[in-house]
Design a protein around this nucleic acid. Structure first.
Lengths: 172, 172
DNA sequence: GTCTATACCCGGATAGAC
DNA sequence: GTCTATCCGGGTATAGAC
């Protein structure tokens, strides 16, 4: 498990932080080994003394994001509050959110439990029913990614769409 | 509007069909100008005599997919039927579905109305309420893309999750 | 309408010296 | 822990001959 986030050296952590800054500021094209090295004032090959490959770096970014989103959910009781926290996190960190949620996830690269901790608040808000929780997550992710990608019609009232979905899953 | 799908030359249409075959059979990495040309037995630069650039080709694939999904919705009355058709289309054409729904959409490249026609069945199934329709679409897209990407836990009962979401949006 | 040749980007990663 | 030099791959696109 040398690639698991908890075992990164201090220097590797610096690299990951720099990578995160680049990703958030400039998007996924900036997340190249060359650009990261440039930002650190070193050459790309030097990065490989600290991280085995690029995927390990991405895994560290993803794991950190999961921990952050779990923290963002803390204190959110009902589904509306969890959804608001979810939406806010994604809008605050759009490029990171995409990295976290798009495409297959290499779970072997993550510390166990990281994904579950992020999901826990959603399951709780769904009243503990796993099926409803998955459906609610799908709704939240769908709204989020379609919003980030500009897929809804111009001028669409997305607050109202979020509210409609939340009301559907959490009538009361 | 020379790049709009309706105005493609016969040869351009062959190219688009070949591209679609490659995309569906081998995934997005196969959707390169070199690979498409290879499959046609010509060289990549020759493609540019028929299509202005790669984005035009992608736009044609996307527009065709939208028409197909609109057709797939025909006859689906309630939300459950529309959702089933949506899920089936995406699972039958996963790479195309991703191309159609991931990232920003260059609407200038599409014939007007194509997107609206695909959406019409969802709006109708949502009882005509645009906010609920957007929320329901987000749910369906979220379920679909998370399913395609293997994001749900191994062994999760996704039929049950779909059913939970459908019940939430269309109680009765 | 096709070709060859080419220009111009980009990327991840390794070997071996210091 | 950093470097230089390099290898490998990929891609979109254009010019100009045939």
């Amino acid at each position: 498990m040398a690639s698991s986030a908890s075992e990164l050296s201090p220097r590797a952590r610096e690299i990951v932080e720099t990578a995160r800054g680049l990703l958030e500021a400039e998007g996924p094209e900036a997340l190249s080994m060359r650009r990261i090295a440039d930002a650190l004032g070193i050459k790309a090959p030097s990065l490989y003394k600290h991280l085995p490959d690029k995927r390990a770096l991405e895994a560290a970014l993803i794991a950190h994001g999961f921990e952050e989103i779990a923290t963002a959910f803390a204190g959110a009781g009902d589904l509306a509050a969890v959804a608001a926290a979810y939406r806010a996190y994604a809008n605050d960190h759009p490029h990171l959110y995409r990295l976290m949620t798009e495409g297959p996830l290499e779970r072997e690269r993550l510390e166990p439990g990281v994904e579950t901790r992020a999901a826990a608040a959603i399951v709780a808000a769904a009243g503990g029913d796993e099926h409803t929780a998955r459906a609610a997550w799908a709704f939240a992710h769908g709204m989020t990614i379609l919003e980030l990608d500009g897929r809804f019609p111009r001028g669409a009232d997305l607050d109202a769409a979020w509210a409609a979905g939340i009301a559907a899953f959490d009538p009361r």
